[in-house]
Design a protein around this nucleic acid. Sequence first.
DNA 1: GTCGTTGCAAAGCGTTTGCAGCCTA
DNA 2: TAGGCTGCAAACGCTTTGCAACGAC
Lengths: 125, 125
Amino acid sequence: MIERETQQRRAIREAFTRAGRPLAPHEILEEANPDAPTLGIATVYRNVKSLVDEGWLKTVELPGQPPRYELADIGHHHHFHCTTCGKVFDIEGCVGKLGALVPRGYELDSHDITLYGRCDKCAAR
Amino acid sequence: MIERETQQRRAIREAFTRAGRPLAPHEILEEANPDAPTLGIATVYRNVKSLVDEGWLKTVELPGQPPRYELADIGHHHHFHCTTCGKVFDIEGCVGKLGALVPRGYELDSHDITLYGRCDKCAAR
DNA sequence: GTCGTTGCAAAGCGTTTGCAGCCTA
DNA sequence: TAGGCTGCAAACGCTTTGCAACGAC
């Protein structure tokens, strides 16, 4: 599908490896700006889509938020959404016994957990 | 703010008490159609907004989904999203020890848990 | 009869698509 | 050089807003 490694595509990849947290399309644009000042939002959307298709990125959906994306090679984890700065951070670990919550007759496949509060930088202020 | 109890507003209220689950705007339109066949989507949005403002409804945000709404007077709970029929159901109970997941320096305020799978009707097929 | 509310249509906003020119291979 | 990729602008789908007509009080 994607066959060429362009400046723009490289800048988008580096934005993710540098950030180390899930990025929304407009955050990608900002993060990649030093490497690719003329990068357009349409190019961000197109490259993100192909990077997800080829398994380099995965989609991170949080309640009430536009989709973000992060490197696909990190394992099962959840997310912390800072309500002050708006950034999203990865959280390690998971809780057990979610199956106990499911009503009789329902079949559980997977789950999402989102934590809300203040990140270390925002809490320190 | 809202001063009049119109046919449309009554139909929207009844849609929620009848459904007993979170409803998205288009689901409200369908559910209220028997009571208010000419109901317009703009009216749904305006009434939902005012019902949230006055505390009769609350917003239910699920990952990757448009906002839904449900009666505000039900307590803390989470949601089950059926990946077959697309409907959302309330789940009672909650897990503990989420605080243990939070990194040092972060402050936890609240959380969302979303379960995915098949509801009883879809699982029975 | 007043004036808040409704329904339509236009405006917004974020995302996707069409197309001519650019640039990687 | 060829053809995939980019950037702009138009198209889209969902939500919000403007406005004239309607209807609750």
